[in-house]
Design a protein around this nucleic acid. Structure first.
Lengths: 170, 170
DNA sequence: TTTGGCATGTAATCCGTTACATGATTAG
DNA sequence: CTAATCATGTAACGGATTACATGCCAAA
């Protein structure tokens, strides 16, 4: 569905899709070539995307685009209830067992959490600022900014939590 | 490692471990029987836990507890850097493609996000309050409360985000 | 007596990543 | 010339869930 969604916006090759996923939805979704190429083959078989040869500078290259049926399938999927994702967090697991940890270990994890979250916030702020300049009012952009905004808020919450936790931790 | 950690605090059977995981670390870690029983066998082979028959009411039952080597292995693991978990979020993926969604679909997802987050916050508040009454100052409890606190903060951030997003969404 | 909870495990299956394999092109 | 990037795929592997299989005990 990520592939189909991206291919509704722009024609792309499998290779470009991988890069586009990392760039755009990478914060909350990722795919490997091992999934992308077989999935494209399947999407093409199901007539949800069409394939076309589009060599770039003599290099062979196949680009895909969503068909009408593909756009309909995406819309249908978007209309369905989302599946709640149960996520694992190794950092929190280590904190949970903090009472059994060597001195300073949890403190180190919390400090790293602060650093990671701050860095993440800075990166997201950069992307947000850049996007806002560009295409000030496209419908797509509005939704992209929303996803970035949640990323930023969660990163901030993590940073604040880790800061408060450091204070408390003995 | 979850199993080892829990077995450092209390002797338990595989069945009880499953329930304990859901109760305590369920928000950020989960295991199925298909992993628990083979893992216990392996931990026992490695002498990190010991097994003992402890029938409850005529029903056969084996309980496990961490050995000295097990506690050392846990401490060593806790000391290591945590692995950052790349997590997938289907809700955000649907929001990202919001421009292609039928009218009202994204609004529905956002409303559900608010409801889910609020419910999550309420549940966490309940657990936090209960824990605080109990054992007011154990070292373990402090760390447990920390993990619950992050859950609460993230849930709040999500609720606030979804509320703001609903306002913006046309 | 039958349903639900306690209790233990295995096998099939799925999902996803990593590694491998190949090869052309372009920039330094 | 050679390293990086573009480009496409498959196979092996590993981690995890689900389903299956079994059986006892207690309560309704």
């Amino acid at each position: 569905m990520v592939l189909l969604g991206l291919l509704c916006g722009e024609s792309m090759s499998g290779y470009e899709l991988k890069a586009a996923i990392e760039r755009s939805v990478g914060q909350f979704w990722q795919e490997s070539y091992g999934q992308i190429y077989p999935a494209l083959k399947q999407l093409n078989r199901d007539r949800l995307v069409s394939r076309r040869d589009a060599p770039s500078g003599g290099r062979k290259r196949q680009i895909y685009r969503a068909t009408k049926a593909g756009r309909a399938a995406l819309a249908k999927w978007l209309d369905e209830d989302y599946a709640a994702t149960t996520t694992r967090n190794e950092m929190l697991l280590k904190v949970f067992f903090g009472a059994f940890a060597p001195d300073g270990a949890i403190r180190r994890h919390l400090e790293r959490t602060i650093a990671d979250s701050r860095r993440s916030m800075a990166t997201l702020d950069g992307v947000i600022a850049e996007l806002k300049q560009h295409d000030a009012s496209s419908r797509e952009l509005q939704y992209w900014l929303l996803t970035l905004d949640l990323g930023r808020r969660v990163a901030q919450a993590r940073a604040e939590w880790a800061t408060a936790a450091l204070q408390e931790e003995t």
